[in-house]
Simulated scan of single mutants.
Amino acid sequence: MKLGIILETKEHEKAWNGFRLAIASLKQGHEVKIFLMGEGVEVEDITDEKFNVSEKMHEFLDDGGKILACGTCIKSRHREDSTECPISTMIDCVEMIDWSDNTVTI
């Protein structure tokens, strides 16, 4: 299965669980892409003792997952492009949805 996840939150536990879902899917042999949108483009900055989102994000990437991030959302927050979350467009989001067998929004 090809799973697309649209992550629109920087809420610690929700973002953490989104990455947990993505990692579990990869471990089951599925392909997974995450598109960060809105507040979701800030997930790299989440610091929380209980829900280590950065650790889960890097585990997802190390396991072969792919992350895209909305360029408009990044620019509106005066953020920079990064290796983990390259700037993408809404067309890239649409292409991810077309590519996916299932799409989940968190």
Rank of each mutant, 00 (worst) to 15 (best):
G71M: 15
N17L: 12
M37R: 07
I23K: 04
P86N: 10
C73W: 00
G4Y: 08
G65T: 05
E39V: 02
D81G: 11
S76I: 10
I106R: 00
A24F: 09
I67Q: 04
L3C: 04
E11Q: 11
E11F: 01
G29S: 13
E80G: 07
I67M: 06
G38K: 02
K14Y: 00
R79G: 13
I74C: 05
E8Y: 01
D98G: 01
I23A: 02
M1D: 12
T89W: 14
R20W: 00
I6V: 14
I91M: 11
E55G: 11
I34Q: 02
I23T: 07
G4M: 10
E59R: 12
E44W: 03
C70H: 10
E80R: 08
M90Q: 08
E44G: 05
A22E: 05
L7I: 12
T9F: 08
E31T: 09
H78M: 12
E42K: 13
E49P: 11
G4W: 06
K2S: 13
S25I: 02
L26N: 08
L68P: 00
W99E: 06
G65R: 03
S82M: 03
Q28V: 12
K27E: 15
K75R: 15
T89D: 08
A15I: 04
D101Q: 06
W99I: 07
L3F: 11
L3D: 11
I6R: 02
E55P: 05
S82V: 06
D81N: 15
M90N: 06
S76W: 08
D63V: 08
M37G: 00
D62S: 14
F60P: 04
C70D: 14
G38W: 01
F35P: 03
K33N: 10
D81P: 06
T72K: 15
E84F: 00
C85F: 07
K50S: 11
I23C: 04
V32W: 04
S76T: 09
V43Q: 03
T89F: 13
I46M: 07
S54M: 13
T103K: 05
N52E: 14
D63R: 12
V41H: 00
L36G: 01
